[in-house]
C-alpha cells in the first residue's frame, strides 16, 4: 500500500492558483522526485503535504488515514520526517542536543520538568549522528555548522522519529556536487533498508536523475509529466519548460 497518497490538491493565493489539482502517491522504499520551474508550486505542494498549509481542495492520506490539513506536530508523531529548503535547526544547542531534543519530542517526553535533558537518549542520538556522518561534530554548536553539515543534522533529526515518510525540500541546495551525491546516496540507503518513502524536490539534475526512482514534473500548479527518470528526461515538454540544455 502507498505510504502517502494525495488526491486533487488545490491551493489558491489571491488570484493566483499555486497548485491546481495535483495527485500523487509514494510507495515504501521509493525515492520520488518532484521537479519544476521556480514558482511552479513545488513548495506549496510540499507545505500541504507537510501540514504547514491546508489545501483548499483535495485530500492527503498517510497509510490510509486521512491527514488533510493536520498540523505538522501531529504528522511528526505519525511518522513524517521533514527537512526544509532553508535549514532550520536549534542554533543555541549543540548538534547532539538538537538530536536529543528531536528524540524527546518524538517520544512525547518534552513535558518533563525535573530530570537533566542532556543525559537522555545519548546513545540513540549518537547513533543517529553516526548514521549521517556527524558523530565527530556532536559537541559543536549547531549555529556554527557549515551548510552541508546542517543538512545532515536536519536529516538526523528527521530520522529521530523512525519515519515512514521523509519530505525533503531541496535537500542538497547549497552543497558541492560530491557532497550532494553522498547525502542522497545516504538517504537512498535509508529508504531501501527501512522501507522509508522519500519525496524530495531538487534542482540538481545529477541528483534527480541519479537517485530518484520516479520523477514528477510540476509546471504552473499542474503535473505535466511523470515516470522514470529516463522517460521524463526525454519528454519534450519537460525539456522546454524546465530542463533546457541540462537534458
Amino acid at each position: 500500500m502507498s505510504v502517502l497518497v494525495a488526491e486533487g490538491l488545490r491551493k489558491r493565493f489571491g488570484a493566483n492558483e499555486a497548485v491546481a489539482g495535483v495527485s500523487l502517491a509514494v510507495e515504501p522504499g521509493e525515492m520520488l522526485a518532484l521537479i519544476g520551474p521556480n514558482g511552479a508550486g513545488k513548495s506549496t505542494c510540499f507545505n500541504m503535504l507537510g501540514g504547514q498549509l491546508r489545501p483548499d481542495e483535495g485530500a492527503v492520506r498517510l497509510g490510509g488515514q486521512d491527514v488533510t490539513g493536520m498540523a505538522p506536530r501531529h504528522l511528526a508523531h505519525l511518522g513524517v520526517g521533514r527537512t526544509f529548503q532553508i535549514t532550520a535547526s536549534f542554533a543555541s544547542m549543540t548538534v547532539r542536543e538538537n538530536v536529543q531534543t528531536a528524540l524527546l519530542a518524538q517520544k512525547r517526553q518534552a513535558w518533563r520538568f525535573w530530570q537533566a535533558a542532556d543525559a537522555q537518549h545519548v546513545g540513540l542520538a549518537e547513533g543517529l549522528l553516526a548514521r549521517v556522518g556527524m558523530a565527530s561534530q556532536a559537541e559543536r554548536p549547531a549555529g556554527v555548522l557549515a551548510y552541508g553539515d546542517l543538512k545532515r543534522l536536519e536529516l538526523a533529526m528527521a530520522l529521530a522519529g523512525d519515519p515512514v515518510l521523509l519530505l525533503m525540500d531541496e535537500p542538497t541546495a547549497g552543497m558541492a556536487p560530491a557532497e550532494r551525491a553522498a547525502l542522497m546516496a545516504l538517504v537512498r540507503g535509508i529508504a531501501r533498508d527501512q522501507g522509508v518513502a522519500v519525496l524530495f524536490t531538487e534542482h540538481d539534475m545529477d541528483v534527480v536523475f541519479g537517485q530518484a526512482d520516479r520523477v514528477l514534473v510540476l509546471d504552473r500548479g499542474r503535473l505535466i509529466a511523470q515516470g522514470t527518470p529516463e522517460a521524463v528526461r526525454a519528454d519534450p515538454r519537460v525539456r522546454a519548460v524546465y530542463l533546457g540544455t541540462a537534458a
Partner: peptide, 10 residues
C-alpha cells in the same frame, strides 16, 4: 545558478 531550474541556469 543556485536553487534555480536548469532552463533559468541557461
Amino acid at each position: 545558478g543556485e536553487g534555480l531550474a536548469p532552463v533559468i541556469v541557461d
